[in-house]
């Protein structure tokens, strides 16, 4: 394999606020390989979504990338001018947002929202009547791809006229409309009913197989990630605290935070096991703890945890940011 598809090195994202500089992402390293499915897990406020908004240059001002480098197919894309970023967005890297109801424009039909994406990236479209026909066919084909029945009829619908699962599929169809190499699915199931959640996740898995699109599954739910992703990255308070092959990380978590996350989700295998939420609150993003950021909430904390700590590699392509791991 010739290097990762997406490579993030030392990324730091800050949001100036009245109370001080919020360090939403603080020194994140990660990579995504072609065709793989990477899970990124953490509580809200862990910086997982912000990391990938930064990749696409979608940080809302005054938020900005303070340090680090983002490379896509070996080319540095952090700090690219807006015009060049625009060419990447939707075509090379696409994203779906958490709630399709708010992410889709309420005033435009499904067709309009799909078609404008294709038009933005395909300069070879013919002019005139043929153009409209081709665009409509492609839009229908996309709806069929994401498993929407009666695509011709759905094209004319407005987002609020569709069900939640259907809207999520439309958003995925839009994201895939230009066959991106990387799809970032930000909390793709959070806004959905439990029964629909599984359908959408299966759809994403199926699309990855058929189209060869790499997928980053951003979720607060380790369970969702466990089922579909080969590798997982666990984030806490703007940092990566653990990463590795999903089976290994879940089977034998090396960071206390990962263990906490595992205990906080219901398990189908052991329905009797009590669910235990992690006690305490997410670290203050303006004045984070000096050492391990999880230290104030960690039951195993000891004085050594108050010293700065780097991600420590473990055998089997794993790493964890904990003093328990031999340096």
């Amino acid at each position: 394999m010739s290097g990762p598809l997406l490579e993030i090195r030392g990324l730091a994202v800050v949001f100036p606020t009245r109370g001080g500089l919020v360090r939403a992402v603080d020194g994140v390293d990660l990579e995504v390989f072609s065709g793989e499915c990477l899970g990124v897990v953490g509580e809200s406020g862990s910086g997982k979504s912000v990391t990938f908004l930064a990749v696409l240059g979608l940080l809302r001002p005054p938020g900005r990338i303070e340090a680090g480098e983002i490379r896509f197919e070996g080319r540095t894309i952090s700090g690219l001018p807006e015009a060049e970023l625009r060419e990447l967005r939707g075509r090379a890297i696409a994203i779906t947002l958490q709630d399709a109801l708010t992410a889709l424009n309420p005033a435009l039909t499904v067709e309009q929202q799909i078609v404008e994406t294709i038009e933005a990236h395909d300069p070879d479209l013919p002019r005139g009547r043929a153009r409209r026909r081709i665009l409509r066919e492609r839009a229908q084909e996309l709806l069929r791809l994401v498993g929407i029945p009666e695509p011709a009829r759905r094209l004319a619908a407005y987002p609020h006229e569709l069900s939640g699962g259907m809207r999520q599929r439309v958003m995925i169809a839009i994201a895939l409309s230009c066959r991106p190499k990387l799809l970032i699915a930000d909390e793709p199931t959070t806004a959905l009913d439990v029964t629909i959640q599984a359908q959408v996740l299966d759809l994403l898995a199926e699309l990855r197989e058929r189209l060869g699109t790499a997928i980053v599954l951003v979720s607060h739910d380790l369970g969702v990630v466990a089922e579909h992703c080969g590798r997982v990255v666990v984030m806490y308070a703007g940092q990566v605290v653990e990463r590795g092959p999903t089976a290994a990380v879940i089977g034998e978590p090396r960071h206390p935070y990962t263990r906490g996350l595992l205990r906080s989700i219901p398990s189908i295998a052991e329905p009797e096991r009590p669910i235990r939420p992690i006690p305490g609150q997410m670290a203050d993003p303006i004045r984070p703890p000096p050492g391990c950021r999880f230290e104030p909430r960690c039951s195993l904390a000891r004085p050594a945890c108050r010293l700065p700590i780097a991600l420590r590699p473990i055998d089997g392509g794993r790493a964890a940011r904990c003093v328990e791991v031999a340096a």
């Binding site: 919020v22 809200s44 406020g45 908004l53 938020g63 930000d186 993003p285």
Partner: peptide, 17 residues
Amino acid sequence: MRAEAVEEGALARPAEA
């Protein structure tokens, strides 16, 4: 996603005043 950044701002508030 956007909510996340907002939340982080909200978290900062108690310490501010």
